[in-house]
């Protein structure tokens, strides 16, 4: 089912541009859904059209981001303007261009601002996924494209939320893949999306006491709501110790 050329293409791209990359992070195709029921929709049931796209297999790692910083030194933590990345940006690294003992190359990179994430993806010829794209991909389980009605899927999400973030992050790709072959969408880090800043900004009231739950289509789907709450608490230059990202691309035009 999976078109092999995508994997090959991505691998080639990595070989040419990121020689020090610690792991292959190919873009895998995610099937679109013309009637996707997003948890973000209003009180009335409504579907959105999400076109097929490609998403990176795992969250971008420290090692991968280090290669980027070396190629684009304007994103070093010691030179980046505060407007684009807050004071804690890449604070887990030993030096502006050195991981050191506190940041393993295979761990997902965190303390990343939205601007930095977007710049990384642009350098890859890619972009951040939109919320709908991310939500569509993350709805999958090991066996289903849309597992959101499965209590076990939901509980697995909540179990991750219940673990404090203070502990060391594990390396990427240590858990099982979903039906698309993607790793770590739910149990490792939060992830930036392209439209993080506009998820809730139209209605401040959604952030607190009840009204947030009211406007969610799937009221029982608290786990998704928590992602939205997290992203909407951030400004684009904010960073946190458990927030990373991965990149997305459109599917190649047919006939290519």
């Amino acid at each position: 089912m999976k078109p092999r050329w995508i994997d090959r293409g991505a691998a080639l791209a990595l070989m040419c541009c990121a020689a020090t990359a610690v792991a292959d992070n190919p873009y895998l195709p995610v099937e679109g859904n013309p009637h996707f029921q997003s948890a973000l929709q209003g009180v009335k049931p409504a579907a959105v059209t999400v076109r097929g796209f490609q998403l990176q297999r795992h969250p971008v790692t420290n090692g991968e981001f280090l290669s980027f910083v070396k190629a684009y030194p304007e994103w070093r933590r010691d030179v980046v303007p505060p407007l684009f990345a807050g004071a804690d940006y890449l604070g887990q690294w030993l030096a502006p261009a050195e991981l050191g003992a506190t940041a393993q190359p295979q761990q997902p990179v965190t303390r990343i601002s939205w601007f930095a994430a977007e710049a990384y993806c642009e350098a890859e010829g890619a972009r951040l996924p939109t919320w709908y794209e991310w939500e569509l991909a993350a709805a999958a389980s090991r066996t289903e494209r849309d597992a959101r009605a499965d209590p076990a899927w939901r509980q697995a999400l909540l179990d991750w939320y219940a673990r404090p973030a203070g502990k060391d992050l594990r390396p990427v790709e240590q858990s099982a893949t979903d039906v698309y072959g993607l790793f770590d969408l739910h149990d490792l880090v939060w992830e930036w999306v392209q439209d993080a800043n506009s998820l809730m900004s139209s209605d401040e009231a959604q952030k607190f006491c009840g009204s947030g739950a009211l406007s969610l289509q799937q009221k029982e789907n608290f786990a998704v709501l928590m992602r939205v709450a997290m992203l909407s608490s951030l400004k684009p230059n904010d960073t946190t110790r458990s927030l990373g990202f991965r990149c997305a691309k459109d599917l190649p035009a047919t006939g290519q």
Partner: peptide, 22 residues
């Protein structure tokens, strides 16, 4: 900084919408 979640506070002793939550 080690926390995973965003948080806020609604104080019932506050006069004002949301009690400070927003």
């Amino acid at each position: 900084p080690d926390n995973k979640m965003p948080h806020n506070i609604d104080l019932h002793g506050v006069t004002g919408p949301g009690g400070g939550a927003a």
